[in-house]
Nucleic acid binder design. Structure first.
Lengths: 209, 209
DNA sequence: CTGGTTTTATCACAGTCGTGATACGAACGG
DNA sequence: CCGTTCGTATCACGACTGTGATAAAACCAG
Protein backbone atom coordinates (compact mmCIF):
# COMPACT_ATOMS: atom_id res chain seq x y z
CA UNK A 1 0.00 0.00 0.00
CA UNK A 2 1.61 3.19 -1.15
CA UNK A 3 1.53 5.96 1.39
CA UNK A 4 -0.37 8.99 0.26
CA UNK A 5 2.85 10.94 0.11
CA UNK A 6 6.10 9.22 -0.70
CA UNK A 7 8.89 11.28 0.91
CA UNK A 8 11.47 10.05 -1.58
CA UNK A 9 9.40 10.96 -4.57
CA UNK A 10 8.53 14.29 -2.98
CA UNK A 11 12.21 15.12 -2.68
CA UNK A 12 12.79 14.10 -6.27
CA UNK A 13 9.86 16.22 -7.34
CA UNK A 14 11.39 19.24 -5.57
CA UNK A 15 14.83 18.47 -7.00
CA UNK A 16 13.41 18.46 -10.51
CA UNK A 17 11.97 21.91 -9.85
CA UNK A 18 15.37 23.12 -8.63
CA UNK A 19 17.15 21.82 -11.71
CA UNK A 20 14.52 23.36 -13.98
CA UNK A 21 14.98 26.73 -12.30
CA UNK A 22 18.78 26.62 -12.39
CA UNK A 23 18.70 25.73 -16.06
CA UNK A 24 16.21 28.46 -16.88
CA UNK A 25 17.13 31.32 -14.55
CA UNK A 26 20.57 30.46 -13.24
CA UNK A 27 21.84 29.41 -9.84
CA UNK A 28 20.47 32.50 -8.10
CA UNK A 29 17.02 31.69 -9.44
CA UNK A 30 16.69 28.63 -7.26
CA UNK A 31 15.46 30.46 -4.18
CA UNK A 32 13.16 28.70 -1.75
CA UNK A 33 10.16 30.73 -2.84
CA UNK A 34 10.88 30.11 -6.53
CA UNK A 35 11.35 26.40 -5.91
CA UNK A 36 8.07 26.27 -4.01
CA UNK A 37 6.25 28.02 -6.84
CA UNK A 38 7.92 25.91 -9.54
CA UNK A 39 7.10 22.66 -7.76
CA UNK A 40 3.56 23.75 -6.95
CA UNK A 41 4.18 23.38 -3.23
CA UNK A 42 4.26 25.72 -0.30
CA UNK A 43 7.47 27.13 1.12
CA UNK A 44 6.78 25.34 4.37
CA UNK A 45 6.46 22.04 2.54
CA UNK A 46 9.78 22.49 0.80
CA UNK A 47 11.41 23.35 4.09
CA UNK A 48 9.91 20.25 5.64
CA UNK A 49 11.90 18.01 3.32
CA UNK A 50 15.07 20.13 3.22
CA UNK A 51 16.21 21.73 6.44
CA UNK A 52 18.15 24.50 4.72
CA UNK A 53 18.61 26.06 1.33
CA UNK A 54 22.20 24.84 1.18
CA UNK A 55 21.10 21.26 1.74
CA UNK A 56 18.52 21.64 -1.02
CA UNK A 57 20.89 22.82 -3.73
CA UNK A 58 23.59 20.43 -2.59
CA UNK A 59 21.18 17.51 -2.77
CA UNK A 60 19.97 18.64 -6.18
CA UNK A 61 23.52 18.86 -7.44
CA UNK A 62 24.64 15.44 -6.19
CA UNK A 63 21.37 13.97 -7.38
CA UNK A 64 22.00 15.15 -10.92
CA UNK A 65 25.61 14.02 -10.84
CA UNK A 66 24.59 10.54 -9.73
CA UNK A 67 22.04 10.34 -12.49
CA UNK A 68 24.65 11.17 -15.12
CA UNK A 69 27.23 8.87 -13.55
CA UNK A 70 24.88 5.93 -13.75
CA UNK A 71 24.38 6.65 -17.45
CA UNK A 72 28.12 6.79 -18.06
CA UNK A 73 28.79 3.48 -16.36
CA UNK A 74 26.84 1.64 -19.00
CA UNK A 75 29.06 3.01 -21.73
CA UNK A 76 32.22 2.00 -19.91
CA UNK A 77 31.03 -1.58 -19.82
CA UNK A 78 30.30 -1.42 -23.53
CA UNK A 79 34.01 -0.82 -24.08
CA UNK A 80 35.06 -3.72 -21.91
CA UNK A 81 35.92 -6.38 -24.47
CA UNK A 82 36.51 -4.87 -27.86
CA UNK A 83 40.01 -6.07 -28.69
CA UNK A 84 38.91 -7.96 -31.77
CA UNK A 85 36.65 -5.27 -33.16
CA UNK A 86 37.88 -2.98 -35.95
CA UNK A 87 39.26 0.42 -35.13
CA UNK A 88 36.31 2.32 -36.55
CA UNK A 89 33.93 0.37 -34.32
CA UNK A 90 36.03 1.11 -31.28
CA UNK A 91 36.05 4.78 -32.15
CA UNK A 92 32.30 4.74 -32.55
CA UNK A 93 31.93 3.19 -29.11
CA UNK A 94 34.16 5.81 -27.52
CA UNK A 95 32.37 8.59 -29.35
CA UNK A 96 28.97 7.35 -28.26
CA UNK A 97 30.16 7.23 -24.67
CA UNK A 98 31.70 10.71 -24.71
CA UNK A 99 28.68 12.22 -26.45
CA UNK A 100 26.88 11.54 -23.20
CA UNK A 101 28.70 14.61 -21.88
CA UNK A 102 27.77 16.87 -24.78
CA UNK A 103 24.59 18.96 -25.05
CA UNK A 104 23.38 17.25 -28.22
CA UNK A 105 19.70 17.26 -27.27
CA UNK A 106 17.45 19.29 -25.01
CA UNK A 107 17.91 17.11 -21.95
CA UNK A 108 21.68 17.05 -22.08
CA UNK A 109 21.71 20.76 -22.91
CA UNK A 110 19.85 21.47 -19.67
CA UNK A 111 22.16 19.12 -17.80
CA UNK A 112 25.29 20.87 -18.99
CA UNK A 113 23.76 24.27 -18.25
CA UNK A 114 22.97 23.22 -14.70
CA UNK A 115 26.42 21.78 -14.26
CA UNK A 116 28.06 24.98 -15.48
CA UNK A 117 25.98 27.00 -13.02
CA UNK A 118 26.88 24.70 -10.14
CA UNK A 119 30.55 24.57 -11.05
CA UNK A 120 30.77 28.34 -11.26
CA UNK A 121 28.87 28.79 -8.00
CA UNK A 122 31.08 26.23 -6.26
CA UNK A 123 34.15 28.36 -6.98
CA UNK A 124 33.04 30.93 -4.42
CA UNK A 125 30.66 28.87 -2.28
CA UNK A 126 32.51 26.57 0.14
CA UNK A 127 29.37 24.55 0.74
CA UNK A 128 29.42 23.32 -2.86
CA UNK A 129 33.18 22.98 -3.30
CA UNK A 130 33.52 19.36 -2.21
CA UNK A 131 30.63 18.16 -4.36
CA UNK A 132 31.86 20.06 -7.41
CA UNK A 133 35.36 18.69 -6.98
CA UNK A 134 34.02 15.17 -6.69
CA UNK A 135 31.89 15.58 -9.79
CA UNK A 136 34.76 16.97 -11.83
CA UNK A 137 37.07 14.20 -10.69
CA UNK A 138 34.41 11.70 -11.69
CA UNK A 139 34.04 12.88 -15.26
CA UNK A 140 37.81 13.24 -15.54
CA UNK A 141 38.17 9.61 -14.45
CA UNK A 142 35.52 8.56 -16.94
CA UNK A 143 37.27 10.33 -19.80
CA UNK A 144 40.67 9.10 -18.65
CA UNK A 145 39.58 5.47 -18.51
CA UNK A 146 38.14 5.64 -22.01
CA UNK A 147 41.14 7.51 -23.34
CA UNK A 148 43.62 5.09 -21.89
CA UNK A 149 41.71 2.19 -23.30
CA UNK A 150 41.38 3.80 -26.72
CA UNK A 151 44.96 5.04 -26.99
CA UNK A 152 46.81 1.93 -25.91
CA UNK A 153 45.73 -0.24 -28.84
CA UNK A 154 46.99 -0.94 -32.31
CA UNK A 155 46.44 1.61 -35.04
CA UNK A 156 47.13 4.61 -32.84
CA UNK A 157 49.71 7.30 -33.32
CA UNK A 158 53.00 6.38 -31.68
CA UNK A 159 54.27 8.28 -28.67
CA UNK A 160 50.93 9.23 -27.21
CA UNK A 161 50.98 9.88 -23.45
CA UNK A 162 47.70 8.51 -22.06
CA UNK A 163 47.69 10.92 -19.12
CA UNK A 164 48.21 13.99 -21.28
CA UNK A 165 45.74 12.75 -23.88
CA UNK A 166 43.15 12.25 -21.16
CA UNK A 167 43.62 15.80 -19.90
CA UNK A 168 43.46 17.10 -23.44
CA UNK A 169 40.30 15.24 -24.31
CA UNK A 170 38.66 16.20 -21.04
CA UNK A 171 39.42 19.87 -21.63
CA UNK A 172 38.16 19.59 -25.18
CA UNK A 173 34.85 18.03 -24.17
CA UNK A 174 34.35 20.37 -21.24
CA UNK A 175 35.17 23.34 -23.41
CA UNK A 176 32.97 22.55 -26.37
CA UNK A 177 30.07 21.53 -24.13
CA UNK A 178 30.29 24.75 -22.13
CA UNK A 179 30.57 26.83 -25.28
CA UNK A 180 27.53 25.15 -26.79
CA UNK A 181 25.52 26.08 -23.70
CA UNK A 182 26.83 29.62 -23.18
CA UNK A 183 27.08 30.59 -26.86
CA UNK A 184 24.63 28.36 -28.76
CA UNK A 185 24.77 30.68 -31.78
CA UNK A 186 28.52 30.20 -32.10
CA UNK A 187 28.81 26.52 -31.15
CA UNK A 188 26.07 24.13 -32.22
CA UNK A 189 25.47 20.46 -31.61
CA UNK A 190 26.99 19.74 -35.00
CA UNK A 191 30.15 21.59 -33.98
CA UNK A 192 30.36 19.39 -30.89
CA UNK A 193 30.09 16.19 -32.88
CA UNK A 194 32.52 17.39 -35.54
CA UNK A 195 35.12 18.46 -33.00
CA UNK A 196 34.91 15.20 -31.09
CA UNK A 197 35.06 13.08 -34.23
CA UNK A 198 38.02 15.00 -35.60
CA UNK A 199 39.84 14.70 -32.32
CA UNK A 200 39.38 10.95 -32.01
CA UNK A 201 40.51 10.44 -35.61
CA UNK A 202 43.57 12.61 -35.00
CA UNK A 203 44.71 10.13 -32.37
CA UNK A 204 44.87 7.35 -34.94
CA UNK A 205 47.93 6.64 -37.05
CA UNK A 206 47.76 8.11 -40.54
CA UNK A 207 47.97 5.24 -42.99
CA UNK A 208 48.50 6.98 -46.32
CA UNK A 209 50.31 10.11 -47.57
CA UNK B 1 46.67 71.15 -14.64
CA UNK B 2 45.06 67.92 -13.54
CA UNK B 3 41.60 68.33 -12.18
CA UNK B 4 41.22 67.28 -8.59
CA UNK B 5 39.15 64.31 -9.68
CA UNK B 6 39.66 62.70 -13.06
CA UNK B 7 36.34 61.12 -14.06
CA UNK B 8 37.98 58.61 -16.38
CA UNK B 9 40.40 57.41 -13.75
CA UNK B 10 37.60 57.31 -11.20
CA UNK B 11 35.59 55.00 -13.42
CA UNK B 12 38.62 52.80 -13.93
CA UNK B 13 39.20 52.74 -10.20
CA UNK B 14 35.62 51.57 -9.65
CA UNK B 15 35.91 49.02 -12.45
CA UNK B 16 38.99 47.54 -10.83
CA UNK B 17 37.01 47.14 -7.63
CA UNK B 18 34.22 45.40 -9.54
CA UNK B 19 36.62 42.97 -11.20
CA UNK B 20 38.32 42.24 -7.88
CA UNK B 21 34.97 41.48 -6.29
CA UNK B 22 33.76 39.28 -9.15
CA UNK B 23 37.01 37.33 -9.07
CA UNK B 24 36.91 36.89 -5.30
CA UNK B 25 33.20 36.52 -4.50
CA UNK B 26 31.54 35.81 -7.81
CA UNK B 27 29.20 37.82 -9.97
CA UNK B 28 26.60 38.27 -7.24
CA UNK B 29 29.28 39.75 -4.98
CA UNK B 30 29.55 42.85 -7.13
CA UNK B 31 26.64 44.70 -5.53
CA UNK B 32 26.69 48.48 -5.39
CA UNK B 33 27.35 48.48 -1.66
CA UNK B 34 30.17 45.97 -1.99
CA UNK B 35 31.71 47.90 -4.86
CA UNK B 36 31.53 51.10 -2.84
CA UNK B 37 33.24 49.45 0.11
CA UNK B 38 35.87 47.75 -2.05
CA UNK B 39 36.74 50.98 -3.87
CA UNK B 40 36.73 53.02 -0.68
CA UNK B 41 33.98 55.26 -2.00
CA UNK B 42 30.44 56.02 -1.02
CA UNK B 43 27.47 54.40 -2.68
CA UNK B 44 26.37 57.78 -3.89
CA UNK B 45 29.73 58.37 -5.53
CA UNK B 46 29.58 55.10 -7.37
CA UNK B 47 26.10 55.89 -8.55
CA UNK B 48 27.30 59.28 -9.73
CA UNK B 49 29.58 57.66 -12.29
CA UNK B 50 27.31 54.77 -13.23
CA UNK B 51 23.62 55.42 -13.56
CA UNK B 52 22.61 51.85 -12.88
CA UNK B 53 24.04 48.60 -11.65
CA UNK B 54 23.59 47.05 -15.07
CA UNK B 55 25.65 49.78 -16.69
CA UNK B 56 28.36 49.29 -14.08
CA UNK B 57 28.85 45.57 -14.61
CA UNK B 58 28.45 45.92 -18.36
CA UNK B 59 31.12 48.61 -18.47
CA UNK B 60 33.41 46.53 -16.27
CA UNK B 61 32.94 43.53 -18.56
CA UNK B 62 33.62 45.35 -21.81
CA UNK B 63 36.49 47.20 -20.17
CA UNK B 64 38.19 43.93 -19.29
CA UNK B 65 37.52 42.43 -22.70
CA UNK B 66 39.08 45.44 -24.43
CA UNK B 67 42.13 45.22 -22.23
CA UNK B 68 42.66 41.57 -23.16
CA UNK B 69 41.93 42.22 -26.82
CA UNK B 70 44.61 44.88 -26.98
CA UNK B 71 47.08 42.40 -25.54
CA UNK B 72 46.13 39.77 -28.10
CA UNK B 73 46.56 42.10 -31.06
CA UNK B 74 50.27 42.40 -30.41
CA UNK B 75 50.69 38.65 -30.68
CA UNK B 76 48.82 38.50 -33.96
CA UNK B 77 51.24 40.98 -35.47
CA UNK B 78 54.15 38.91 -34.21
CA UNK B 79 52.89 36.11 -36.44
CA UNK B 80 52.61 38.35 -39.50
CA UNK B 81 55.70 37.42 -41.48
CA UNK B 82 57.15 34.13 -40.34
CA UNK B 83 57.22 32.14 -43.56
CA UNK B 84 60.99 31.68 -43.48
CA UNK B 85 61.22 30.77 -39.81
CA UNK B 86 61.54 27.13 -38.76
CA UNK B 87 58.48 25.22 -37.67
CA UNK B 88 59.46 25.07 -34.01
CA UNK B 89 59.77 28.84 -33.91
CA UNK B 90 56.36 29.27 -35.50
CA UNK B 91 54.87 26.91 -32.96
CA UNK B 92 56.52 28.85 -30.14
CA UNK B 93 54.99 32.06 -31.47
CA UNK B 94 51.53 30.55 -31.64
CA UNK B 95 51.90 29.02 -28.20
CA UNK B 96 53.01 32.33 -26.68
CA UNK B 97 50.02 34.04 -28.23
CA UNK B 98 47.50 31.45 -27.06
CA UNK B 99 48.97 31.32 -23.58
CA UNK B 100 47.61 34.82 -23.21
CA UNK B 101 44.21 33.14 -22.78
CA UNK B 102 45.37 30.68 -20.15
CA UNK B 103 45.47 31.33 -16.38
CA UNK B 104 49.21 30.77 -16.07
CA UNK B 105 49.80 33.52 -13.52
CA UNK B 106 47.77 35.32 -10.90
CA UNK B 107 46.60 38.11 -13.17
CA UNK B 108 45.41 35.89 -15.98
CA UNK B 109 43.87 33.52 -13.43
CA UNK B 110 41.73 36.37 -12.11
CA UNK B 111 40.89 37.40 -15.67
CA UNK B 112 39.65 33.96 -16.62
CA UNK B 113 37.70 33.69 -13.39
CA UNK B 114 35.96 36.99 -14.09
CA UNK B 115 35.26 35.96 -17.64
CA UNK B 116 33.71 32.68 -16.53
CA UNK B 117 31.46 34.53 -14.10
CA UNK B 118 30.35 37.00 -16.75
CA UNK B 119 29.81 34.35 -19.39
CA UNK B 120 27.71 32.26 -17.03
CA UNK B 121 25.72 35.29 -15.88
CA UNK B 122 25.13 36.38 -19.46
CA UNK B 123 23.36 33.11 -20.20
CA UNK B 124 20.36 34.18 -18.12
CA UNK B 125 20.83 37.97 -18.07
CA UNK B 126 19.74 39.59 -21.36
CA UNK B 127 21.57 42.80 -20.47
CA UNK B 128 24.91 40.99 -20.71
CA UNK B 129 24.11 38.70 -23.63
CA UNK B 130 25.30 40.97 -26.44
CA UNK B 131 28.58 41.81 -24.75
CA UNK B 132 29.29 38.18 -23.91
CA UNK B 133 28.54 37.10 -27.45
CA UNK B 134 30.84 39.78 -28.83
CA UNK B 135 33.63 38.77 -26.46
CA UNK B 136 33.31 35.09 -27.34
CA UNK B 137 33.28 35.85 -31.04
CA UNK B 138 36.40 37.94 -30.55
CA UNK B 139 38.46 35.23 -28.92
CA UNK B 140 37.15 32.72 -31.44
CA UNK B 141 38.33 34.97 -34.24
CA UNK B 142 41.69 35.38 -32.59
CA UNK B 143 42.15 31.64 -32.23
CA UNK B 144 40.82 31.03 -35.73
CA UNK B 145 43.21 33.48 -37.34
CA UNK B 146 46.19 31.96 -35.60
CA UNK B 147 45.03 28.44 -36.35
CA UNK B 148 44.48 29.09 -40.02
CA UNK B 149 47.90 30.69 -40.28
CA UNK B 150 49.57 27.87 -38.42
CA UNK B 151 47.81 25.02 -40.17
CA UNK B 152 48.17 26.16 -43.78
CA UNK B 153 51.95 25.93 -43.92
CA UNK B 154 54.48 23.24 -44.75
CA UNK B 155 55.21 20.53 -42.24
CA UNK B 156 51.61 20.14 -41.13
CA UNK B 157 49.49 17.04 -41.16
CA UNK B 158 47.67 16.66 -44.47
CA UNK B 159 43.91 16.95 -44.64
CA UNK B 160 43.44 19.39 -41.79
CA UNK B 161 40.28 21.51 -42.02
CA UNK B 162 41.19 24.98 -40.75
CA UNK B 163 37.66 25.76 -39.62
CA UNK B 164 37.28 22.56 -37.64
CA UNK B 165 40.77 22.87 -36.21
CA UNK B 166 39.98 26.41 -35.08
CA UNK B 167 36.83 25.25 -33.30
CA UNK B 168 38.74 22.36 -31.75
CA UNK B 169 41.58 24.55 -30.50
CA UNK B 170 39.19 27.17 -29.20
CA UNK B 171 37.22 24.57 -27.26
CA UNK B 172 40.44 23.09 -25.92
CA UNK B 173 41.76 26.43 -24.68
CA UNK B 174 38.43 27.51 -23.26
CA UNK B 175 38.02 24.17 -21.54
CA UNK B 176 41.43 23.87 -19.96
CA UNK B 177 41.37 27.52 -18.87
CA UNK B 178 37.98 27.14 -17.25
CA UNK B 179 38.99 23.91 -15.58
CA UNK B 180 42.15 25.49 -14.18
CA UNK B 181 40.04 28.21 -12.61
CA UNK B 182 37.15 26.09 -11.35
CA UNK B 183 39.21 23.07 -10.28
CA UNK B 184 42.75 24.30 -9.61
CA UNK B 185 43.58 21.13 -7.72
CA UNK B 186 42.79 18.99 -10.73
CA UNK B 187 44.10 21.22 -13.52
CA UNK B 188 47.24 23.27 -12.89
CA UNK B 189 49.15 25.79 -14.96
CA UNK B 190 51.52 23.03 -15.99
CA UNK B 191 48.58 20.99 -17.26
CA UNK B 192 47.51 23.95 -19.38
CA UNK B 193 50.92 24.36 -20.96
CA UNK B 194 51.33 20.64 -21.51
CA UNK B 195 47.92 20.28 -23.13
CA UNK B 196 48.48 23.23 -25.45
CA UNK B 197 51.97 22.11 -26.43
CA UNK B 198 50.82 18.57 -27.12
CA UNK B 199 47.93 19.82 -29.21
CA UNK B 200 50.06 22.10 -31.38
CA UNK B 201 52.59 19.33 -31.95
CA UNK B 202 49.81 16.91 -32.87
CA UNK B 203 48.91 19.18 -35.78
CA UNK B 204 52.35 18.75 -37.30
CA UNK B 205 53.22 15.93 -39.68
CA UNK B 206 55.00 13.07 -37.98
CA UNK B 207 58.34 12.67 -39.66
CA UNK B 208 59.67 9.44 -38.15
CA UNK B 209 58.11 6.63 -36.20
C1' DC C 1 -13.07 8.00 19.12
C1' DT C 2 -8.32 9.43 21.06
C1' DG C 3 -3.50 10.62 20.73
C1' DG C 4 0.58 11.34 18.20
C1' DT C 5 3.02 11.98 14.07
C1' DT C 6 3.41 13.93 9.60
C1' DT C 7 2.45 17.47 6.36
C1' DT C 8 0.99 21.88 5.07
C1' DA C 9 0.47 26.67 5.74
C1' DT C 10 1.37 31.33 7.55
C1' DC C 11 3.54 35.05 10.07
C1' DA C 12 7.51 37.73 11.52
C1' DC C 13 12.27 39.02 11.67
C1' DA C 14 16.71 40.68 10.14
C1' DG C 15 19.36 41.17 6.27
C1' DT C 16 20.45 42.53 1.40
C1' DC C 17 19.38 44.38 -2.98
C1' DG C 18 18.74 48.45 -6.66
C1' DT C 19 17.00 52.84 -6.91
C1' DG C 20 14.63 57.44 -6.38
C1' DA C 21 14.97 61.61 -3.87
C1' DT C 22 17.24 64.89 -1.35
C1' DA C 23 20.72 67.63 0.77
C1' DC C 24 25.36 69.58 1.70
C1' DG C 25 29.81 71.17 0.33
C1' DA C 26 33.46 71.86 -2.86
C1' DA C 27 34.97 73.49 -7.26
C1' DC C 28 34.70 76.54 -11.03
C1' DG C 29 33.26 80.18 -14.67
C1' DG C 30 31.86 84.78 -15.11
C1' DC D 1 31.28 88.20 -5.50
C1' DC D 2 27.47 85.04 -7.16
C1' DG D 3 25.55 81.06 -9.39
C1' DT D 4 26.02 76.76 -11.53
C1' DT D 5 27.82 72.47 -12.03
C1' DC D 6 30.07 68.48 -9.95
C1' DG D 7 31.02 65.34 -6.25
C1' DT D 8 29.79 63.31 -2.00
C1' DA D 9 26.73 61.64 1.38
C1' DT D 10 22.47 59.96 3.48
C1' DC D 11 17.71 58.73 3.85
C1' DA D 12 13.63 55.89 2.60
C1' DC D 13 11.01 52.75 -0.15
C1' DG D 14 9.59 48.31 -2.03
C1' DA D 15 11.17 43.85 -3.22
C1' DC D 16 13.58 39.90 -2.24
C1' DT D 17 16.38 36.55 0.53
C1' DG D 18 16.86 32.48 4.30
C1' DT D 19 15.14 31.16 8.54
C1' DG D 20 12.89 30.64 13.25
C1' DA D 21 8.47 30.00 15.33
C1' DT D 22 3.89 28.68 15.35
C1' DA D 23 -0.45 26.84 14.14
C1' DA D 24 -3.74 24.32 11.57
C1' DA D 25 -4.88 20.37 9.00
C1' DA D 26 -4.32 15.59 7.50
C1' DC D 27 -3.03 11.13 8.43
C1' DC D 28 -2.68 6.76 10.89
C1' DA D 29 -2.22 3.48 14.76
C1' DG D 30 -4.34 1.90 19.06
Amino acid sequence: MPKLVDPVERREHIVRAVLRLVAREGFAGASLRNVAAESGLNIGSVRHYFTSHTELVLFAMTSMVERVSARLLGHVEAAAHWERRPLAARRATVQAALEELLPLDEDRHAEVAVFVEFAAAARTDPALAAAARKAAAGTRGFVARLTERYVTTDGMRPGLDPAVEAARLWALLDGVATQAVLQPQLVTAETCRQVLDTHLRSLEATRGT
